[in-house]
Nucleic acid binder design. Structure first.
Ligand SMILES: [Zn+2]
Ligand SMILES: [Zn+2]
Ligand SMILES: [Zn+2]
Ligand SMILES: [Zn+2]
Lengths: 141, 141
DNA sequence: TTCCTTATTGAGATTGAGTCTCAAAGAAAT
DNA sequence: ATTTCTTTGAGACTCAATCTCAATAAGGAA
């Protein structure tokens, strides 16, 4: 039994949505890798495995997953958004190589705390944040 | 004499580009306000002032300005990118209201330092960063 | 100034990611 | 089986942004 499948079922039920072959396939594909992939890569991977699905359904399902905190959307500055599952992971942000596209993950508690603090100072209620460091990786310098 | 005009001329000259009415108009429009505006808003504002310019030229000119550090590009998560001039300003990041689009600017030295540190740890050379806090402003909570 | 070369401009076509439409298929309920 | 409601998918569409290319403008030379 694939990780998070029950959680997916619960979410769908809670949202009044049905558990379908396509939705299951999208989730299984996303959970099958820790990479940061775009919607089209996920779509192609599902097709390659013989499951019939459309791009529209992939996008729609990813939306549900992102809204329900099972998947994270990652805007890498150029090209399509990338997605990663959030099962068995901690919150992290990204360092992205502007030359080769390599992505590393980082997490600094102190930065997270300072974010909360500054948001409060401005009277905002923090919902989410984007923190991306763009630069050149070891190989590309 | 508009702020930064000489700098613009130097940059254009250095890049082997010509100083044209359109490029001057784009710069003057961007420098005329501290708002965060998108390319189309800037385009419309220039037209309204009677200068003939095309969208293509606005985009092309903004590219030059961004590359040469006179303008900052700001991806606000949805819709077109926004731009702000960098004359007489310090580096800052943004808090964005996901309800009404309001944008506040913040700057925390400690966060900037921690960013440098974490980038070095990963062997990257930091070129730029995006740090955006999305949430609900006082009015929208 | 005039001439010449090269860069720039702009209208509209194109791209690319993502969303929408709507008829057909599928699920659940009675 | 019938009805009702949801989901799917092919392709149309949107929107920001980029590209094309003929016409125009800038800057240099003389
Ligand atoms: Zn690299
Ligand atoms: Zn990640
Ligand atoms: Zn607000
Ligand atoms: Zn700003």
């Amino acid at each position: 039994m694939s990780k998070g499948l029950n959680r997916l079922k619960k979410i769908l039920h809670h949202e009044g949505l049905r558990f379908t072959t396509q939705r299951e396939a999208v989730w299984r594909e996303i959970i099958s890798s820790d990479d940061h992939r775009d919607a089209d890569e996920i779509y192609m991977a599902i097709r390659k495995k013989g499951v019939s699905v459309s791009r529209a359904t992939v996008y729609r399902t990813i939306d549900v997953l992102v809204k329900n905190n099972m998947v994270r959307k990652l805007d890498v500055g150029t090209g399509p958004s990338k997605f990663e599952h959030k099962i068995d992971t901690y919150h992290h942000d990204h360092i992205i190589c502007i030359q080769c596209g390599r992505i590393e993950e980082f997490m600094v508690d102190q930065i997270e705390d300072l974010q909360d603090k500054v948001t409060q100072e401005y009277g905002f209620k923090l919902v989410r944040h984007i923190h991306q460091l763009f630069g050149l990786c070891k190989n590309c310098q």
